[in-house]
Design a protein around this nucleic acid. Sequence first.
DNA 1: TCAAAAATATGACCTTAGTCATACTACAAA
DNA 2: TTTGTAGTATGACTAAGGTCATATTTTTGA
Lengths: 239, 239
Amino acid sequence: MCIFEESDDYMIGKAQKHITCATCKARKDSLFCTFKDDDLDNLDQVKSCNFIKKGQSLFLEGGIPRGVYCINEGKIKIFTRGEEGKEQIIHLAKQGEVVGFRAMFSGDPYVVSAETLEESSVCFIAKNDFLDLIDTNTILRDGILKELSTELAERASFVTNMSQKSVRERLASILLILNNIYADEYINLSREDLANFVGTATETLIRLLKDFKDDRVIKTHVRKIEILDTNLLESIAGL
Amino acid sequence: MCIFEESDDYMIGKAQKHITCATCKARKDSLFCTFKDDDLDNLDQVKSCNFIKKGQSLFLEGGIPRGVYCINEGKIKIFTRGEEGKEQIIHLAKQGEVVGFRAMFSGDPYVVSAETLEESSVCFIAKNDFLDLIDTNTILRDGILKELSTELAERASFVTNMSQKSVRERLASILLILNNIYADEYINLSREDLANFVGTATETLIRLLKDFKDDRVIKTHVRKIEILDTNLLESIAGL
DNA sequence: TCAAAAATATGACCTTAGTCATACTACAAA
DNA sequence: TTTGTAGTATGACTAAGGTCATATTTTTGA
């Protein structure tokens, strides 16, 4: 299931052509954007690069954290499962994001799972190497603190939206978020994943998408979703 | 409204008899539990002690963070407001907890508000002093990272509970949490606050409390709530 | 290219929980 | 004590959205 748990040496097997941090186009948006030549050389030494198929897990809820994953290319969903096993997507990570670093500090197993939504290229940095980086690089450390704080703030408003907004409003909000994540391409998520992000039943989500289509807010290209009117979406979301 | 914003010098006015960190009984449960004599002396120098009436704000959503608040005695609700102004309580902090430190790192205004639920004794540490402590004390720094990580994990499951559990299940979960926070005393929250924690309407909450009373799960002493059967609550919560 | 499986879509129905109106109770102030 | 006010409680009604059944379309793989 989880490719990084296939063997004791979790870096074996899927390693692909090495991506050099110094020239990595995703790095400018990442926690490592301030790294200088020396830091980059060091990072290059300790990391491994992996090419991961769609639908593979990077790590699973309950698993033991071994390191962090830096996304070079592709999209990763971060989710928990409720009692009945239903997924709740908490976050959708794209290139440049580092996922799984929260678990480096808590000392506990993962409380979320991470799975690729499309073919992805992901670099792995082992826990000790990552913690060493933080000890020796105060800018990185401050970046981590800031990132954790920002996510905590986002999650507070996520809770509030979940408890106070209607499914229709939440769908509008999520579509706006996805529109940014998918930047210049159409949103490409299954109806089920989208429902699990909004926190609703798949049937309800499909019905609402139809309403949005009728109202010319979105257009669908089979499974892909094109956003036609962000202003209207914002007003539906109550922003 | 917010006592710390009454004047430019936010430490003036409400300062009360100084609580010595070295003898503070709440400290053993706090981020500062590992502090040695020197650290404690330093902390004593930079902090101010305040006695705060029930229903006062420590800080408000949208306000500029000035420092952190260490709870010596009392309980503080941390909440956001949705579009219609309805509160969603995110966390309920008790003695020993440090509130507001997330905002020290994000560089943004507060995204939550903090308000006392009862008469409280709270120490204030200004932002720069707090950041200095973190720079010079790696144990504190690691404690902060761990605390942020743990809260982030808790909040992920909060989101999932909100989206997948019924109000009845959520109420049971929240009552169990409150039972720990209120330890050896009865839960003492208004029906409205409780509803805002569970994320429901006050009327719905009252109806469910009645069901729980009928089922001998809880007993009410006017507004206070006594938990009679934690096992039953756990099974209702779906744990 | 075709069959099977998976994903998407739609209808019918019903439960949960929100809203509004109103009544009751506890507590604080005069 | 009385009275006002805020908090608590209950009833009636309604709408949002979940579930289950089934149909249709798209994708996958032999």
